[in-house]
Amino acid sequence: MKKYTEDHEWVSVEGDTATIGITEHAAGQLGDVVFVELPAVGTKFKQKGEMAVVESVKAASDVYAPVSGEVVAVNQAIADDPAKVNADPEGASWFVKIKLSSRSELDRLMDEASYRKLIG
């Protein structure tokens, strides 16, 4: 199951693990990503909490947690080479994996059709 937020994060759920990243649209709007700051494994986030930072040449943007939970893995590859975010934002360039604490939060997120409508 893949869901989307109004802040242009995506979350893909398998079992009780959610993989989170930023959408193609977000990566395109940001432009070339030059810096990514990821949380430490073990950090707990509430839904909509500031989870990561992504910066392009010109601007910084926060990445918010689409759902509450505890970070179980981070993608060090995008911190080491931030340009990877632009290359494959909804695939290999995921940001974090978290252990879901509340599945019902997923219901409040958009499905793909609704997100496509949002970005026009």
Partner: peptide, 10 residues
């Protein structure tokens, strides 16, 4: 124009 199709970096 803030950028064209190549983007700021290029």
């Amino acid at each position: 124009p803030v950028q064209y199709t190549d983007g700021v970096l290029k």
